[in-house]
Amino acid sequence: MELQHDGGRPGAVAGLILAGGRARRMGGEDKGLISLAGRPMVEHVLERIRPQVDDVLINANRNAERYGSYGHRVVADVIGDYSGPLAGMLTAMMAVQQPWLAVVPCDSPLLPTDLVDRLCRSVLAESAEIAVAHDGRRLQPVIALLSCSLLPDLRAFVDQGGRKIDTWYMQHRMVATDLSDHPEAFVNVNTPDERLELEQRVLAGALS
């Protein structure tokens, strides 16, 4: 695959916020709409990702009207609700016009403001199809940049029952993007206690 450069990027990039999970550990509450420091979590994520991409989609399987109030397209999983992050990625690839898709979760409110640029640089340096964030210890698979040329392959994988994101990634030219200098990027919220802890840190100005 020959990459077409676009201002230091492999091409135009759409952003996808994954907000389609069941959030069992949060008692089933929609994580993207949980309040953090006085605002729904998704607002913090939107604030970080919106300036970095050419378009934004929100993958949500409920509360579409609430998410739609932010002025971006809301897309529900095309293969049935709550099928995991690959379903959200597939749905977004089918909906966007851009050749690249930057994926982030709705519960990581402290993403780097240069996240997409760093993922793009990794793709260009390695002629990769996928760049995945790495926190210095392990991959963070729901923070990634994907070539939308992989749509047919992803559709086939999902149609055959594939749901494991790491398994699909490893079938393609993947590069890890070192973000160990931004540990706050990987602070997310999976339980009520984690939400309280993160909120206290944000309100105290410990993280920005």
Rank of each mutant, 00 (worst) to 15 (best):
D54V: 01
I79T: 13
V132H: 09
A12V: 01
G136A: 00
D178I: 11
W100V: 01
D81N: 09
N61R: 02
E184I: 11
M1N: 06
N63H: 15
R173Y: 05
L57D: 06
S180I: 03
E65I: 02
R25T: 12
T167Y: 11
L179W: 07
V56C: 01
S35R: 11
L36M: 07
L33H: 02
A156Y: 09
P85C: 05
P51F: 05
G71T: 07
E129P: 08
Q171N: 10
I165M: 13
M1C: 02
A23Y: 14
A131T: 05
P105I: 02
A128E: 07
H182Y: 15
S83Q: 15
A156C: 00
E194T: 05
E129S: 15
G136S: 06
R25I: 06
V13Y: 12
L110H: 03
A37E: 01
A23D: 13
L196I: 14
G11S: 04
H5K: 12
L101E: 04
E199I: 06
Q171P: 04
A14E: 05
W168G: 04
P40M: 13
Y169I: 04
H172A: 10
T191P: 02
G28D: 07
Q160E: 15
I130M: 03
L179T: 06
A87P: 04
Q98F: 12
G205T: 05
R73K: 12
P10V: 06
R137N: 14
L154W: 03
D114R: 11
Q4W: 01
E47P: 00
V96C: 13
D153Y: 00
P141E: 03
A76T: 03
I143G: 06
H5P: 02
E194K: 10
C148S: 13
L110I: 04
R121A: 15
A60D: 07
K31F: 05
W168N: 02
W168Q: 01
D114H: 11
V123R: 09
S35E: 15
R137D: 12
S127N: 15
V187Q: 15
Y70S: 05
I49Y: 08
P40K: 12
D30M: 09
L198F: 09
L179H: 01
Y67I: 01
F157W: 14
D114Y: 14
A102N: 03
Q171V: 00
V74L: 07
L150G: 02
R50P: 00
P192Y: 11
D178E: 11
C120M: 05
H172F: 11
P183Q: 13
D178K: 10
L36H: 09
P105M: 02
Y169E: 07
P152Q: 10
L86P: 04
L146E: 09
M26T: 06
M41N: 03
E194F: 00
D166R: 14
D55V: 04
C148P: 09
L115W: 10
G38Q: 07
G8W: 04
L124Q: 11
E29W: 05
M170S: 13
H134C: 01
